[in-house]
Amino acid sequence: MNEVLASTLRNAVYERLDYLDRLVNEADLPSRASLADSEIARMTAAWRNLLAKHEPDYRGRCRECGGWRRRRPHPCSVWTTAHKNLIVIDSPKTPSTGRHAAASYLPSAG
Rank of each mutant, 00 (worst) to 15 (best):
I87M: 12
L35T: 02
H100E: 11
T44G: 05
A102F: 14
S34I: 08
V78L: 03
N11Y: 13
L23N: 11
A103I: 06
A41D: 08
L29V: 11
A33I: 07
E39A: 11
T80V: 13
P75V: 01
I89R: 15
P107L: 13
R71G: 04
L20D: 01
S31A: 15
V24W: 06
L50S: 06
G110T: 07
A101N: 10
I40L: 15
M43V: 08
A6M: 15
S77C: 07
N2H: 11
R63E: 05
W47F: 03
N11V: 05
A101P: 00
A6T: 08
L17I: 09
P75M: 03
A52C: 10
R72Q: 14
T8I: 10
T97N: 03
N25G: 09
W47R: 00
E15H: 14
H83V: 02
E39Y: 15
A102E: 05
R72Y: 13
L35S: 02
A6G: 11
S77E: 08
Y14S: 10
P92L: 06
Y58D: 11
G60Y: 03
P30C: 13
A82D: 01
N11W: 13
C65S: 02
A82G: 03
G98D: 02
A46H: 10
I40D: 05
I40W: 09
D18L: 07
C76I: 00
L23F: 11
L5S: 11
S7G: 12
W47Q: 00
H83T: 03
L51M: 06
A102T: 04
M43D: 03
S77D: 10
S104E: 06
R32D: 00
S7Q: 11
R61Y: 06
P75Y: 01
L86Y: 01
S77Y: 15
D28E: 14
L106C: 08
S34E: 14
K93G: 09
L86F: 01
T94C: 11
C65W: 01
A27L: 09
G66K: 04
A82W: 00
T81S: 15
S38N: 12
R61P: 00
P56A: 00
L50H: 04
Y14N: 10
N25K: 12
Y58L: 10
H74C: 07
L86H: 06
N2C: 07
A46L: 09
A82S: 05
W79V: 02
A36T: 07
N2G: 13
D21Q: 13
A27H: 07
V78Q: 02
L17N: 06
P95Y: 05
I89M: 14
W79Y: 10
E15G: 05
T97M: 04
R16N: 07
A109N: 09
I87F: 05
C62W: 05
L5N: 09
N11Q: 15
L17S: 07
A27R: 05
R63S: 06
R10H: 12
P95K: 04
V13D: 03
E39K: 09
Y14F: 15
L9F: 13
R16F: 09
D28F: 09
P30T: 08
S34C: 08
P73L: 14
L29P: 03
D57L: 01
N49F: 12
N49R: 09
E26T: 12
R99Y: 14
H100Y: 14
R72S: 15
